[in-house]
Computed example of a mutant assay.
Amino acid sequence: MPPFPEPTAPADGRAEVFLRYLDYFREGVLAKAAGLTEEERRGSRLPSGWTPLELLKHLRHVELRWIEWGFQGRDVADPWGDQRDERWYVAPEESFAELTAALRSQGAHTRAVVEGTDLAARGAPGPRWEGADPASLERIMFHLVQEYARHLGHLDIVAELAGGPVGE
């Protein structure tokens, strides 16, 4: 897992700060999930019913929706592929290893986009924006960091309830 991105650590700019936090939170989610049994990854301890595997798939699709479908304006066949019947969904044949690889791959794509683009650049017009003006890459990155931080906090609690890893 990458080290915590301390505010005092030198960085080449705001883009690098965003990427460090995003990498840290993404790997934190994966480490928490890896510390659970397969039964705990596929089961839920929460009234809402979401599972750690569903969370992994959701976060992969969050990056897909915001970076590829939104910012890049790419045609994405199923941007909401993490959902079924208005809730997160993972098919029985989807494995932790596959979901982990997909999340890391999506993260590598996000990194490449951010490293090659000015944070002030605006997203491509398209259906992601639902008629609003496209957001800047900086606003998208801020949104992704908060999304990951929030969900890592959720997973912290689930892991503790399951007897899995605790702490950062």
Rank of each mutant, 00 (worst) to 15 (best):
72 Q>A: 10
137 L>Q: 03
150 R>C: 07
125 P>W: 05
31 A>R: 10
42 R>H: 15
101 A>R: 11
43 G>Q: 09
11 A>F: 11
92 P>T: 03
24 Y>H: 07
115 E>K: 12
88 W>K: 04
145 V>W: 13
82 D>L: 07
164 G>Y: 06
54 E>R: 04
123 G>A: 09
125 P>D: 15
47 P>H: 10
130 E>F: 09
109 H>D: 00
42 R>K: 11
80 W>M: 10
63 E>T: 08
34 A>W: 05
89 Y>F: 13
35 G>Y: 10
51 T>Q: 05
88 W>N: 12
17 V>E: 02
21 Y>S: 06
5 P>Y: 00
114 V>Q: 05
19 L>H: 03
45 R>P: 03
27 E>Y: 07
144 L>N: 02
76 V>M: 09
157 I>H: 15
14 R>K: 13
107 G>W: 00
40 E>F: 00
52 P>M: 02
135 A>L: 14
145 V>M: 13
116 G>C: 09
132 A>Q: 15
55 L>N: 08
148 Y>D: 10
148 Y>M: 08
85 D>I: 01
43 G>S: 15
59 L>P: 05
147 E>M: 02
115 E>P: 08
66 W>N: 11
138 E>W: 01
103 L>D: 06
98 E>M: 01
135 A>C: 00
125 P>K: 06
92 P>N: 03
105 S>N: 12
117 T>V: 04
7 P>M: 05
140 I>E: 02
